[in-house]
Design a protein around this nucleic acid. Structure first.
Lengths: 201, 201
DNA sequence: GACACAAACGAACGATCGTTCTATAAATGC
DNA sequence: GCATTTATAGAACGATCGTTCGTTTGTGTC
């Protein structure tokens, strides 16, 4: 990795954790330059525009999410084991990644959901991909025989996302110490309702 | 209502729908003055500071939420009827209130969840009150005999909020036309799991 | 050591930000 | 209808915003 690439990554690291606190639209080149001990113009040159910097942060977030949440989970065997691994990693990922201020992507989703442009498009792309991964994981759990054949995988993924979101909010805003436990309770209920009934022996 | 109070409310209306699009922290006095055809200083005088304006918007949002969602639902008899009315009104409230850009409170929750200060406190207050209302409604459904006596009302409310949040995101960002239907499916599953079993006759 | 190229800097730009001040216009009370 | 309070306007402030420009520093190559 050349020197340019190296500092660019350093800037991105800082921007990533800063965006976690103030949001992607709250990013400021001046403050970012201060934190990285660079000049505004020197930092700016790496991206060409603020929007490009913001896009880079969003892409960085997606990449880290795939690495920290999805990849390890996909090392589990298909089925319920893997599905549960996704949930556990997911709930943990704001701690795992350097996200002092909560999930960047989810925050960005609320920021940009009605402001057309490249940023909204990027967020949308990321969340669509996530949804697809979830659905795929559920479908495989059905194929593996862990969930009932008539399981609505889209519905299942939809509800998983809901659990994640309310957990984040409860943890961060309401300081609810039971948030994670409640998330798992909700997930277990979800699984129970769609699980294949245990056969009597 | 004196003239001062009247224009203040007009400003607040505009700020409310603007914040729905750009977020509470994205509000700008200049733009707001432009939209209300006032001078910046004239508008400013009604609030004394930007933060006070933002707080007023958050309080306005809470008040409208209570009027549009909770109050009508509480005219239903206690129990499942009322609980369902809350859900239906809730899903509809961004259309009902003047919220072209989605729920202000939820967006603010993501914006301020790790930025200590009066704004975060206000959001927190609002969401805590909401959670309490939900729990109370669930408890009354238990007392009314619609839900099982061992129902964990906090858990129930927790999951309801999750359903709401993912529905908003699916609707606004992913343009999912099935979002509302999925929300009701999820809610029905929630009710079914906690409902008192139908007695055999 | 001369050269080419990339990386970072420093100064400045115009625009917008929230805020303050003073003065005028409008509404209110008697 | 006058006096007083209230509401709005206008101009300006310092700060910060993203961005541009020309220059300097650093790195690697023949």
């Amino acid at each position: 990795m050349g020197k340019g690439e190296h500092t660019r990554q350093a800037i991105l690291d800082e921007a990533f954790s800063l965006a976690s606190c103030v949001g992607v639209s709250g990013l400021s080149i001046g403050i970012l330059a201060e934190r990285t001990k660079m000049s505004k113009s020197g930092l700016f040159a790496h991206f060409g525009s603020k929007e490009e910097l913001q896009l880079a942060v969003l892409r960085e977030a997606q990449q880290r999410f795939a690495e920290v949440v999805l990849r390890p989970a996909f090392r589990q065997p298909r089925g319920l084991r893997r599905l549960r691994a996704v949930v556990v990693n997911w709930l943990d990922w704001t701690r795992e990644a350097n996200l002092p201020g909560g999930c960047v992507i989810n925050a960005a989703a609320a920021e940009f959901d009605d402001q057309p442009g490249p940023l909204r498009d990027e967020v949308r792309r990321g969340l669509t991909a996530l949804r697809r991964s979830l659905v795929e994981t559920v479908v495989k759990a059905v194929v593996a025989g862990d969930l009932r054949p008539d399981t609505d995988a889209e519905q299942f993924a939809f509800e998983m996302e809901g659990i994640y979101q309310v957990t984040q909010q409860s943890r961060r805003l309401l300081n609810d110490p039971d948030a994670d436990r409640r998330a798992l309770v909700a997930f277990d209920r979800l699984v129970r309702d769609y699980a294949v009934p245990i056969e009597k022996e």
